[in-house]
Write a protein that binds this DNA or RNA. Structure first.
Length: 437
RNA sequence: GGCCCUAUCGUCUAUCGGUUAGGACACAAGCUUUUCAAGCUUGGAAGCGGGGUUCGACUCCCCGUAGGGUCACCA
């Protein structure tokens, strides 16, 4: 059974790159019927915090990436100690006297006795990779017997946890020969490696907190109102393709079609526009009632008595890519027509070359048509369109829409009537007619 | 700089020696409920350069070039 692990270090919030690597591990485990271990690599006590750990855990939970086991390296010190002792004993590591050049550096650390050899390993994505470890020197594997460093702890854990596949970011590829050396020293089996390509920014650089600020944190996407499944869908497509032309996937579908074969070798640039599009596609697939609950909750913050009917829900969905767009619509007054009487300007009521007299006549006519119209967009349209087409669509539809919304830009008049209801619409049309008298 | 990785439209990608180099996002134009948005239709847009191998290379090999990653008592 394949056993994979994701090993984030809690020295920062959940990064989108970490999230994507976790996704690939998760998908691989699911697809192959394997086992997925999450291992918090908190051997750096200076930089690791519980807050970051919680942020990572909560972020993965939000995304829906579940793991079978959770471990913390800080709770496994005794295991590392025994390995360090063993290595010291058999000569594969030694205590090295140092001259501390910086503050905080020890005068004594534990170094690995580098056999200085060529290492060739197979990578599922890149094929054979060769390194000469001579350039690595006798690298430090522990600050002291009780304080293991990354390479040692990672190799010991991968061995103890019987990890079969190490799926990680390409930035770890040059760490691999070091780790293989340690594996050989402790008699561990070599896992199969898969180094997945990195995510780059528009400048083709690794996404970093320093340069991109909060855009690298998963939390940001949660706060922006992206659907977790859409984020996952986008991450999957960033560096992997299913071999078909399908682009919209649920997490479950991804677990069924994922394969390492489809993973790209070259880095991919993060494109927020495509993420937005994918999010919208997922929004369209959402259960209308679930969607209604979200929209209603947001709209009610500003208009407590709001009721989100089908038509209002429809035009809202048409206008948003993420849920935070609803907040923008609210603050830009795009919902105002629904909750308050519009302020009308006489000049704006008249379409291009039309006259006040004709406009008034058209509105009166529409008012008549509406007398026994049902509250349904399509029905209203079929009642009003023949007249509009007869006398000029702009001459009728523009003043009607403006009378209802009081805005130069708004949804179409038929939807507006359906949303407002016949009575309220009639009242607004009447006000416009009075303005023209 | 050493070592390592990578190289098809602006972006994500298909092509696993023979294609008018396909799709998606974005962009442009047109259409529709003469606004906005959405939707639909159409369009522009790519094989880094040079050598090989081959009847035939985007595809395989080599050399350049470019970009990236990594070189901690961080992970």
């Amino acid at each position: 059974m394949p056993i994979v692990r994701m090993a984030p270090s809690p020295t920062g919030n959940l990064h989108i790159g970490t999230a994507r690597t976790t996704l690939f591990n998760y998908l691989f485990a699911k697809k192959t019927g394997g086992y997925f271990i999450l291992r918090i690599e908190d051997t750096d006590t200076e930089r690791s915090t519980k807050e970051y750990e919680n942020n990572i855990l909560n972020g993965l939970k939000w995304l829906g990436l579940e793991y079978n086991e959770l471990h913390r390296q800080s709770e496994r010190t005794s295991t590392y100690v025994s390995y360090v002792r063993k290595m010291l004993h058999d000569g594969s590591a030694y205590i090295s006297k140092e001259e501390p050049k910086e503050e905080g550096k020890r005068s004594e650390v534990i170094r690995f006795k580098n056999p200085n050899k060529k290492i060739v390993f197979k990578d599922l994505i890149r094929g054979e990779v060769e390194f000469d470890t001579t350039d690595l020197g006798d690298f430090v594997i522990a600050k002291s017997v009780e304080e293991p460093l990354y390479h040692l702890a990672a190799v010991v854990d991968d061995h103890e946890m019987k990890i079969t596949h190490v799926i990680r970011g390409e930035d770890h590829i040059s760490n691999t020969p070091r780790q293989i050396l340690i594996q050989e020293a402790i008699g561990a089996e070599r896992p199969i490696y898969a180094h997945i390509p990195l995510i780059f920014d528009k400048e083709r650089k690794k996404l970093s907190k320093r340069k991109h600020g909060s855009a690298v944190w998963i939390d940001t996407y949660k706060e922006e109102g992206y659907l977790p499944e859409a984020v996952l869908n986008y991450f999957a497509l960033l560096g992997w393709n299913p071999g078909t032309e399908q682009e919209i996937f649920t997490l479950k579908e991804l677990t069924e079609v994922f394969s390492m074969e489809g993973v790209q070798k070259s880095p991919a640039i993060f494109d927020i526009e495509k993420l937005k599009w994918i999010n919208k596609e997922h929004l369209k697939k959402m259960d209308p009632n679930d969607l209604r609950i979200v929209v209603e909750e947001k709209v009610k913050e500003k208009f407590p008595n709001a009721i989100i009917g089908d038509d209002l829900l429809r035009i809202t969905l048409e206008r948003i890519y993420t849920f935070s767009d609803i907040d923008k619509m609210l603050s830009e007054g795009e919902f105002d027509f629904y909750f308050s009487e519009p302020e009308l300007l006489k000049d704006k009521l008249i379409w291009k070359e039309s006259t006040p007299k004709d406009t008034k006549k058209h509105l009166e006519k529409i008012s008549e048509f509406l007398l026994d119209a049902p509250q349904n967009t399509e029905a209203i349209k079929s009642i009003l369109m023949p007249y509009a087409e007869e006398v000029g669509k702009g001459n009728v539809l523009w003043p009607l829409r403006y009378a209802l919304s009081g805005k130069e830009k708004s949804p179409d008049p038929f939807s507006l009537i359906a949303i407002l209801g016949i009575d309220k619409s009639q009242a607004r049309i009447k006000r416009a007619i009075e303005l023209l008298s």
